[in-house]
Design a protein around this nucleic acid. Structure first.
Length: 467
DNA sequence: TCTCCTACCAC
RNA sequence: UUUGUGGUAGGAGA
């Protein structure tokens, strides 16, 4: 199964490794291996932002990123494998049409993916558009990073969910026991274009860049063979979308900061910490007002609440306070999800082979345990482990039961008793060794306790890294 | 120490 | 069945 991937990586890494052979005649641009065939036009680098975006080094980095992600194609069905060939041929006309302002992005391909409730709408741009969007994002990111809030953690370099959770924990320790949990309804679909463009042009002074981004917002979606225009929303699926969402919601962050609220935001998930129930309620209604009237976004009132910190769910965790300190625990929905997944992996994965099943389980458990390692849960860890062991035993028992009924049927049909039981025992020992192997080696206390130890060492690391 | 690749997890 | 960030494990190399 990994023969294919090895082959691909060999084929694709070789030209990159060998790129230095051309160093002699292409001078300073050698590291841009897309352009090494035709780089007569590299001295168009000005100080304009658009020129920075279409500069060979930036476009090259963007291309590399798009290729690395190995996403599927957009409406033109071009895949990332053929992207390089396309770019070396059409790079010049692409760049000039972008610079002249007559580049028209393709509409995005509509893909629906199942979510917990309902489905999520994705808009997948063509691979070429993903490159250009990535190039824009790469230039915008360093411009915006300094002005983004310290309390915003989603979609940002060197920031993660764990940082957001640590911050919540710190606020709770400081005595903020009530929280406003605001859920922005279908955030990506409801972004108001003119508000976003207005916010954008406050920082992005190059009007051509703003207009290019505007074109991406207006590119529309293709459903079947029809192209539908998009007056609101930013397509969920483009490299530009995450930073645009942060640019939009940075306005909200600034408002919260000017009101001196304690808050933590992860993408469109917002938690405002308050000292009292009354102030939480007041904050919630005034922030809903602000978000809907000033930012023209919609707040999902059913999912939003102001409540004691024990009741809120944030990034898969929930909170409580013990001995004056804020603590984290795994929200029960996350535990339920994990159980469902393990159930699926242990029972419905027939025909996968045992080593494969063991490997998949190990990967899932380590990933899961690693994400939820911030939770205070020695007891919880052991409970999960116990549950898992019972689950495996049950699977073994069920299989044995199935074998026994089958043996009885065979005897009824006239098969010799000894022959039937001999067969049964070989089946039994097969299943038993298969499953007890998993029981012993995959998860168990060792693996889960390891997650607990990692948590402790991580606290040390966290202190030193996190300034 | 660093670079690159794969796989998985969370949001 | 997509994008982004971060994390974990494994592999190849100097």
């Amino acid at each position: 199964m990994n023969g294919r991937t090895q082959k691909i990586s060999k084929e694709e890494t070789c030209p990159q490794k060998n790129r230095t052979v051309s160093e002699g005649y292409v001078g300073g641009q050698t590291f841009l291996w897309i352009t090494e065939n035709n780089l007569t036009d590299t001295n168009q680098l000005g100080d304009g932002l658009l020129e920075m975006i279409v500069s060979p080094s930036n476009l090259n980095r963007a291309y590399q990123q798009v290729k690395r992600n190995k996403g599927s194609g957009g409406v033109d069905k071009m895949e990332v494998e053929s992207l390089q060939d396309y770019l070396v041929i059409h790079k010049d006309e692409l760049i000039t049409s972008i610079l002249q302002g007559n580049y028209r992005p393709n509409p995005v391909r509509r893909v629906l993916i199942p979510k917990d409730n309902g489905h999520r709408k994705l808009g997948i741009p063509t691979v070429v558009d993903r490159c250009i969007q990535q190039a824009i994002a790469q230039v915008l990111s360093p411009m915006y990073e300094p002005q983004f809030s310290d309390n915003s953690y989603g979609f940002r370099p060197r920031r993660n969910a764990h940082g957001a959770l640590r911050k919540c924990q710190a606020y709770i320790t400081e005595g903020y026991k009530y929280a406003v949990d605001l859920d922005l309804e279908k955030f990506f679909d409801t972004v108001n274009h003119s508000k976003l463009i207005e916010t954008l042009s406050r920082t992005v002074k190059d009007g051509r860049v703003v207009s290019l981004i505007h074109k991406y917002l207006n590119a529309g979606v293709q459903v079947g063979s029809k192209i539908r225009t998009s007056e609101v929303g930013v397509p969920q699926g483009g490299p530009l979308s995450p930073i645009l969402s942060n640019i939009m919601l940075n306005e909200m962050d600034k408002e919260l900061e000017s009101r001196e609220h304690k808050f933590v935001r992860y993408a469109d998930d917002l938690l405002i910490l308050c000292r009292s129930k009354r102030s939480a309620e007041r904050t919630m209604s005034s922030m809903i007002h602000f978000i809907e009237d000033k930012l023209f976004l919609k707040v999902n009132r059913e999912k939003s609440q102001s409540a004691h910190i024990r009741k809120v769910k944030f990034l898969g965790y929930s909170f409580y306070k013990s001995k004056g300190e804020g603590r984290l625990r795994i929200h029960r929905k996350s535990v339920a999800k994990m159980k469902a997944k393990i159930k699926e992996l242990t029972s419905r994965s027939n025909g996968w082979g045992n080593s494969r099943r063991k490997e998949v389980l190990r990967q899932y458990i380590t990933g899961w345990g690693n994400y939820f390692k911030l939770a205070d849960m020695k007891n919880r860890l052991l409970r999960i482990d116990e549950w898992y062991r019972r689950r495996i035993r049950m699977v073994i028992w069920k299989q044995w039961k199935r074998i026994r009924t089958r043996v009885k049927n065979l005897i009824k049909l006239g098969v010799k008793k000894s022959k039937a039981w001999e067969w049964a025992n070989t089946r039994k020992s097969y299943w038993h060794t298969a499953n007890s192997f998993i029981l012993k080696t995959t998860i168990t206390t060792e693996n889960l306790r390891k997650a607990g130890y990692v948590m402790l060492s991580d606290q040390y690391r966290k202190v030193s890294i996190k300034t």
